[in-house]
């Protein structure tokens, strides 16, 4: 991805505190439109925390404080006029563990559109459900059992259901927090292909522990360590020619 694409998210000096504990020490980076950017780094390095800043999911954690600015399309996501509910509709999230609601497959997908009033008629809602499931590559597997509980699907299917669920509210950015860490290699490769297709329409930020995955799916890669952003660049450059010693050590498996 060339850096001439418009900036979608621009973070400046983002710091996060959990109580007295500082988890992020001033992160600044830009995320460009329609790119896939992956965050890598050892556990506890702050990559998930930073991801959760982008749709203010950290608000749900008690004693968590975020400073610095994050601009989405040039607009500060912390400004009082911007409602966090609107933000999260724009910036969707897929979690580490598949977390379908204990409802039917159809209701899992239609949940978001219904809340946001995206469909006036039942037929519109049906369309949204079908297209979301199709884009998540799940339609053919579940079209005959939309009324069955989403929790009855396999782990990989559940995760694609969750991706379909977030697509259904037409976000602009999808944040993925280690979306494949609970899945087997086959389900993982299906999701990776899906990510490749989704980037036509969405900007995708993905946190992963799996460096091969980062290398396979992402245009750019950011390496985090101990709450600092150590290096960010084109995935190829980061993996073949890291600028920082710590990045190289991590990528070559010397620690982490």
């Amino acid at each position: 991805m060339s850096n001439s694409a418009p900036v979608k998210i621009s973070a400046t000096d983002v710091k996060v505190f959990y109580g007295d504990n500082q988890a992020l020490h001033g992160i600044s980076m830009d995320v460009y439109q329609n790119e896939v950017i992956s965050f890598i780094g050892p556990s506890g390095c702050g990559k998930s925390t930073f991801l959760r800043c982008m749709n203010r999911m950290n608000d749900t954690i008690e004693h968590c404080r975020v400073t610095g600015s994050i601009l989405l399309d040039g607009r500060d996501i912390h400004e009082p006029a911007l409602d966090v509910v609107q933000l999260r509709a724009q910036v969707g999230m897929v979690f580490q563990k598949p977390n379908p609601f204990p409802k039917s497959i159809y209701e899992n997908i239609s949940y978001g559109p219904k809340l946001h009033g995206l469909a006036e008629r039942k037929a519109d809602l049906d369309d949204i459900v079908e297209s979301s499931l199709r884009r998540a590559g799940l339609w053919n597997e579940v079209k005959d059992r939309l009324d069955q509980p989403g929790t009855g699907l396999s782990g990989g299917q559940q995760q694609r259901l969750c991706i379909a669920r977030s697509i259904a509210v037409s976000p602009e950015v999808i944040l993925m927090d280690e979306p494949c860490s609970a899945l087997d290699p086959i389900a993982t490769s299906i999701i990776e292909e899906l990510i490749d297709e989704l980037k036509q329409n969405f900007t995708i930020v993905i946190v992963t522990h799996n460096m091969q995955q980062a290398a396979r799916v992402s245009d750019r890669t950011a390496f985090f360590h101990l709450g600092n952003l150590i290096e960010i660049g084109n995935t190829n450059d980061v993996f073949t020619n890291p600028q920082q010693k710590r990045t190289e050590d991590y990528i070559t498996g010397r620690y982490g």
């Binding site: 509910v85 977390n99 949940y111 509210v169």
Partner: peptide, 18 residues
């Protein structure tokens, strides 16, 4: 009820009461 359930809903832009 697991927190992941709440996160899933909040992550879709649902309000707390929803």
């Amino acid at each position: 009820v697991p927190k992941s359930m709440r996160d899933g809903s909040l992550g879709l832009g649902a309000t707390k009461s929803e």
